[in-house]
Write a protein that binds this DNA or RNA. Structure first.
Length: 494
RNA sequence: GCUGCCAUCGUCUAGCGGUUCAGGACACCGCCCUCUCAAGGCGGAGAUCACGGGUUCAAAUCCCGUUGGCAGCGCCA
């Protein structure tokens, strides 16, 4: 196999969603694995639905995911540019080849209006036949064509499909697939607007951009015989095809907006790491022999192969993605988690959440809480108590630990003793604090937990959190004592 | 309706004719660790390999059929 060029060719008609990312990812991984080129092409031939906004969203999403393209918008290559189909259309790229096909007698102008064609299809369907255009305009004489033209009728260009035989596709993933040519009709390659249709633009561009492998969702597989015939008609080499299985929603239907949370940028806002999303998506439809689950991006690049792509569709499991995100966060150093968090704050415009927070304290807090983080957006609620002036005492924590009949006496005792003794605790390290607490328990003849829990609630307001003594060390003596006194005043004031 | 694709624990998957009364991961349950919550460790439950026929000494693995799911059938991509 020589030099490899693959492409991701989204149409800018909305957000980049999970299914699209998977397609982009597998192309990208394939290119990286083979040392080939990954091209990004914008297929904006749908005049009605394509938007500039959507192009921007797609580019942003690709950048966030670090699915960098070797060629595409912003990375033009004079040999292949431009990378937007409407731009290419303006240069007459497609018209030229449509004319060539007409000249060869392999395509023809068709004057039928959409309503006529619809009718034909409806009738065919009613007769339990595949809905097809009947090819009537291919039989027009030159005079008849001139007549139509002089009447000012607009024509589309239709490609003549052979009606006999079969078209064989040797798909890299699906294997050999045969299509009965008689089931396919003469399809439109140029609209009346002069804009090419998908099937045509795609082939022309893949040829001109020297795409060697077309890796796409298997919802495109039935387009493939049409495309193959265009390649043949133009005497172009047919690229390799690999059709990946679809990603389905929990209901088993192809993932779409309806399932919610399908837009990539939403995942960023939720606080997913790009590498978690990438890793997860790689697992959908691809696997290694040892069924490994966690991969670094580098490892994916090294190990990816089309041969190990699965053929059956897979259901998107947000729960597993969440686990993987936690896994990725746990694999980061505290400094990295801090940086990730800061980036997340910026990208979600949430900087006010941490206003007035001491950076060093935040970093230390992250060391203690890292293993608990599933999403970056969880971080504020996990560490905010370190930064509050007024501790937010959770009602349930107070009731259970400080004021319950069973424990209120010991809790009061522990806090008052601590308020007195802790200021004299010279070594405020976690280790030494633990000694202090355990000794206090022995001295007062109560259980260690009866010392630990009240202090925890007093300084954090909650029953859950980091290890108590690590937490105290990080907060510092002054603050711990201040909070204990505040708690005494609030709950045990005579 | 027609055509195509697909079918292993709830989910993602390993398996490419015998070493598998099917292995891993998520989720779930239990135990351990432990000052709480996590994380981690250990263990458990969970799949008549969709069904029915073949081929073979031997099939989750090959072939055929059935059923079910999905996709496509546009001057959408």
């Amino acid at each position: 196999m020589g030099y490899i060029r693959v492409r991701f060719a989204p149409s800018p008609t909305g957000d980049l969603h999970i299914g699209g990312v998977r397609t982009a990812l597998f192309n990208w991984l394939f290119a990286k694995n083979k040392g080939g080129k990954f091209i990004l092409r914008i297929e904006d031939t749908d005049e009605a639905r394509s938007t500039e906004e959507s192009v921007k969203i797609i580019l942003d999403a690709m950048k966030w995911l670090e699915l960098n393209w070797d060629e595409g918008p912003g990375s033009e290559n004079p040999k292949y540019s431009p990378y937007c189909q409407i731009e290419r259309k303006k240069q007459g790229v497609y018209q030229k080849y449509a004319d060539k096909l007409v000249a060869k007698g392999l395509a023809y102008p068709c004057y039928c209006v959409p309503e006529e064609v619809d009718d034909m299809r409806k009738k065919a369907r009613a007769n339990k036949l595949p809905p097809k255009y009947d090819g009537r305009c291919s039989r027009l004489t030159t005079e008849q064509r001139k007549q139509k033209e002089s009447e000012g009728k607009k024509a589309v260009v239709r490609f003549k499909m052979p009606s006999l035989g079969t078209t064989v596709l040797n798909d890299l993933i699906k294997g050999r697939v045969e299509f009965d040519n008689s089931l396919l009709d003469d399809f439109v390659i140029m609209k009346t607007s002069g804009i090419p249709t998908y099937n045509f633009a795609c082939v022309v561009d893949d040829y001109l951009m020297e795409i060697t492998h077309v890796l796409r969702g298997d919802d495109h597989i039935s387009n493939t015989p049409r495309q193959i015939h265009i390649y043949n008609a133009l005497d172009w080499k047919v690229p390799e095809f690999a059709h990946m299985s679809m990603i389905l929603g929990p209901d088993g239907v192809r993932l779409s907006k309806r399932h919610g949370h399908t837009s990539v940028l939403e995942y960023r806002k939720e606080g997913y790491l790009q590498e978690a999303l990438i890793n997860y998506l790689a697992l959908l439809g691809w696997s290694t022999e040892d069924s490994r689950q966690v991969f670094k991006i580098e490892e994916l690049k090294q190990e990816f192969s089309i041969e190990r792509c699965g053929i059956s569709p897979s259901i998107f499991d947000p729960v597993k993605l969440l686990w993987l995100n936690g896994e990725k966060i746990r694999s980061k150093s505290p400094q990295q988690v801090y940086e990730l968090f800061i980036d997340w704050l910026k990208c979600t415009d949430n900087e006010k959440l941490t206003e007035g927070w001491d950076v060093e304290l935040l970093k230390k807090a992250l060391v203690l809480e890292r293993d608990k983080i599933k999403l970056l957006k969880d971080i504020p609620s996990l560490v905010d108590f370190f930064f509050t002036k007024e501790v937010d005492y959770r009602e349930e924590a107070v009731r259970k630990i400080l004021l319950s009949e069973k424990s209120k006496d010991s809790a009061k005792l522990v806090l008052i003793e601590s308020a007195v003794r802790l200021p004299n605790q010279h070594d405020f390290s976690a280790e030494s604090l633990e000694h202090y607490a355990r000794n206090l328990a022995v001295e007062k003849n109560i259980k260690a937990g009866q010392v630990f829990h009240p202090i925890r609630v007093a300084i954090s307001g909650r029953t859950q959190g980091p290890g108590l003594f690590q937490m105290m060390e990080v907060m510092g003596k002054e603050e711990v004592v201040r909070r204990i006194n505040a708690a005494i005043n609030k709950f045990f004031q005579q």
